[in-house]
């Protein structure tokens, strides 16, 4: 069988989503961002909403998310993506707006913006990449860094007295009546990725149905920041992250509103 025979439509079992651009990703090998981007591109493509989707990228490793998915993008200041998305969404109610934010961006410097946007129930999707570390700046402690976890600014491990507790912000978001769907997913196995894609799709369908804010946390690896191989990072995540950040739906309501409080957890 030569190459020409292999490249036939009937032999096609997998292809890059059309919306993913051909730019080489700057993410480290093993990083979860690449998979998350691919799932996002697949969902936007399957829902056929390229023309009405506006993405807001954060400050952090995914600041360049706009290089990889062929939709209109705005790049926000650190932590301000939910406010930027609010502005876009409010004056463009026909558009589907999402933010893509890391844990430093969303759960530290941008805490006010994410809480208030979710509490107002802005009609938008939030993709929250939680890898428990600041990746782009070189592996410093994040608000989500686990107790005992070694980072560039907690060289002896995160210490409770010095650094306080890791923040379960997704559980807090689940308490806000403005959110209709709050879930925590991961992309470390094909099965997990499929579940995560379903969650992302539901979030975008909610935005199309004007169901307020939908929030998808993806517990992720940062093998470079964690100083591990990609495989070790996946194992470490399963052993250490999942017990503290359990995967699953936190809230799945028909619509946002006072009655849409947490069902689970």
């Amino acid at each position: 069988m030569d190459l020409a025979e292999i490249i036939k439509p009937e032999n096609l079992v997998y292809k890059k989503p059309n919306l993913l651009t051909n730019k080489t990703m700057h993410y480290c090998p093993g990083c979860s961002h690449g998979v998350a981007h691919k799932l996002l591109a697949e969902v936007i493509e399957e829902l056929d909403i390229q023309e009405k989707t506006i993405g807001v990228s954060p400050v952090g490793c995914s600041v360049f998310a706009y290089n990889y998915i062929s939709i209109d993008w705005q790049e926000a200041a650190h932590g301000r993506a939910p406010a930027v998305a609010t502005g876009i969404s409010r004056v463009n109610p026909d558009k589907v707006v999402f933010t893509y934010q890391g844990d430093g961006d969303l759960a530290s410097i941008g805490t006010a913006e994410i809480m208030h946007a979710c509490n107002r129930g802005e009609n938008m999707v939030v993709i929250f990449i939680n890898n428990a570390i600041y990746g782009m700046t070189g592996g410093q402690m994040a608000p989500t860094t686990l107790l005992g976890q070694v980072t560039a600014t907690t060289p002896c491990g995160r210490d409770l007295e010095r650094n306080g507790y890791p923040l379960k912000i997704t559980e807090l978001i689940g308490q806000l009546p403005g959110t209709s769907y709050v879930t925590r997913q991961s992309v470390h196995t094909p099965a997990a990725s499929r579940k995560c894609k379903k969650a992302i799709k539901k979030a975008f369908e909610n935005a199309l149905a004007k169901k307020g804010t939908s929030f998808v946390e993806i517990v992720s690896t940062c093998n470079s920041g964690w100083r591990m191989t990609p495989v070790d990072a996946n194992n470490w995540m399963e052993e250490n992250m999942f017990p503290f950040y359990p995967v699953g739906d936190i809230k799945d309501a028909e619509k946002a509103g006072p009655e849409a409080f947490t069902k689970k957890n």
Binding site: V84, G87, R90, E113
Partner: peptide
């Protein structure tokens, strides 16, 4: 016309950024 009371001046100027970025 949309009028929104933001949670802070930080948020309001970033809402302006987003809305202005869409040509409004």
């Amino acid at each position: 016309m949309v009028v929104l009371q933001a949670e802070s001046e930080v948020a309001s100027i970033n809402m302006v950024y987003g809305a202005a970025g869409s040509g409004k």
